[in-house]
Design a protein around this nucleic acid. Sequence first.
DNA 1: TCGTGTTCGTTAGAAGTTGTAACGCAACGA
DNA 2: TCGTTGCGTTACAACTTCTAACGAACACGA
Lengths: 219, 219
Amino acid sequence: MTDTGTETPRERYRAQVRAEVKAHAWEQLAAAGASALSLNAIAKRMGMSGPALYRYFANRDELITELIRDAYRSLADTFRATAAAAGPDASALAHALRDWALQDPHRYFLVYGTPVPGYHAPDDITDIVREIMATLLDACAALPSDSPATPFGSHLAEHRRWAGDHPAEPAALHRALTFWTRLHGVLSLELAGHFTGMEFDPALFFAAELEGLTNASAP
Amino acid sequence: MTDTGTETPRERYRAQVRAEVKAHAWEQLAAAGASALSLNAIAKRMGMSGPALYRYFANRDELITELIRDAYRSLADTFRATAAAAGPDASALAHALRDWALQDPHRYFLVYGTPVPGYHAPDDITDIVREIMATLLDACAALPSDSPATPFGSHLAEHRRWAGDHPAEPAALHRALTFWTRLHGVLSLELAGHFTGMEFDPALFFAAELEGLTNASAP
DNA sequence: TCGTGTTCGTTAGAAGTTGTAACGCAACGA
DNA sequence: TCGTTGCGTTACAACTTCTAACGAACACGA
């Protein structure tokens, strides 16, 4: 996963066990969700006793934090790869996002689902979020736009610190935000099963929302 | 909460204890979320031993199911009251939804948050969902609209069983769906704290999305 | 090659949780 | 008044997270 160059055998072994634990954790997560994640069960499946894992993770929260970080990284990688292959294309990003979400719904909810009460994301995740947002802003800035300035757009022009030093127009900032929330709105309800009774095709709905997003007259 | 007319003292007492348990559960839920809900803790706070509560709820899941049902009912009541006061007004419904969500974020996530893996909603909840959707459809049908028929709109025209026997145009169906997903997109990310680093005003963003929804040229 | 110290995995155990079983008691209804 | 029903208790099983103490394996410097 990372460089295994100047590491002692101990560090190498340690990293490998941590990776194996996380692999089992992802398996368990995909099967039953984050709340059902059990360090004991993972240990047993690895042929170790429960407390052994506490040599590698301080507690259950640290493991989950690690999984959340990996999930963010995975999304950032997906966006980076999409942008590298298709350029700043909002439509491509949207489909990459949907594929990424459908590939492992529990991973999506780990990032965008119900927050754990006491939990607070570590600082380095904000860097990953910033990269994801930058890629999205690039794509939104490249979109054709003939929509007039909106009240919220001018509000965003004065509160754009979240965009870092990205040279996007207020309309692009607004578009990036709606891109995020609208697609999340469709995806999260679809993944949570709120569409299951209704027999329409979620993919078509997603496409319709995306179409509205990439219009020159949007948002 | 309900009629206490032709009930035996036992049934009355039973209903009262169940209500008290649920009250403590809501308290605990608002404080620490659904995953931290403990039957034992509730029992102790009520001055009883843990297993006593199993006379009133078969298990933890049944209690949570009851809370989810109450949450749905609460939203349906809010929508019904709003429609009774303001008529079929999508804007009023949107603000009612936002107020309802902000009033108790954990309650919102109980309904629209990360689903519990093994959990399946009981049938009677679909009736409540149907009422909520009907109110929303009424409001969307009353909205002025000059937008042309969309591809997804015609798809919805052929898959409209979820709308029950509501006589709404395909455009209204489409509008109701986007109303739901777009507002949920903003609300869920706001409540989950994903906007906290970014210093814009979520209320303005919500208003902007609502404005886009109630336009005659929407969606 | 031989200590030495770090680290790993173990078992034991504390303090929780959900949930079941068996018991006594109180209350309701005939 | 008396029997049935239901309630709350304790005891217990089977889990969970997580700490403490111990022995063994390992890496490393002398």
